[in-house]
């Protein structure tokens, strides 16, 4: 059974090695400062107590106030999994360091996050759009990509049939 290492635990152990590298420790994830990211990830990969050699998933999230990139890591040796995050506050040109030097498997996933969310991964050798074509306007997974009429943002309103649906943008013109 995989042990899911909580963000607080992983934040503690990172803190022991790299003081001031951790920004936040939540039950579900730990947030690492952007400029220390590659260092921390490399240590997590190589440290015999962690050995998170497998990058399970890399994805970006638009949190409206900030962008974040989530790294779901996995250690085959200890059968552990954990989640590390990094944030970028720049709304227009978010950018975080690339994880490709740590895990080659980040290549395509970073391209995907760049393509759909517009997060630049500094240091990715081949950061091009992947699903959409070069020159596609905007980044579709951003919450402000196409605003609904009335300033409503997709994904934030209520649905018909739900109590209080009449308050939502849906169903009312």
């Amino acid at each position: 059974m995989t042990t899911y290492v909580t963000g607080i635990q992983i934040a503690d152990s990172i803190d022991g090695k790299f003081p001031d590298a951790v920004e936040d420790g939540q039950p579900e994830f730990a947030v690492v400062k952007s400029d220390r990211l590659v260092e921390v990830l490399t240590w997590l990969r190589d440290d015999p107590d962690h050995e998170y050699k497998f990058l399970s998933s890399l994805t970006g999230v638009d949190r409206i106030q900030w962008f974040e990139v989530a790294y779901h890591l996995e250690s085959f040796k200890h059968n552990r999994a954990t989640t590390i995050k990094v944030r970028s506050d720049d709304r227009e040109n978010p950018s975080v360091p690339s994880a490709v030097p740590v895990w080659l498997g980040a290549q395509l996933q970073e391209r995907e996050a760049y393509d759909l969310l517009g997060i630049r991964f500094e240091g990715n050798p081949d950061l091009r759009r992947i699903f959409l074509w070069e020159g596609f306007a905007g980044f579709p997974l951003r919450k402000d990509y196409l605003n609904l009429p009335g300033g409503k943002m997709p994904g934030l309103e209520r649905f018909p049939g739900e109590p209080g649906a009449e308050l939502s943008g849906r169903g009312t013109e």
């Binding site: 998933s57 994805t59 999230v61 638009d62 994904g155 209520r158 649905f159 739900e162």
Partner: peptide
């Protein structure tokens, strides 16, 4: 009522 972010690995 709907996912804020829905990612498929």
């Amino acid at each position: 009522p709907s996912p804020f972010r829905f990612h498929i690995r």
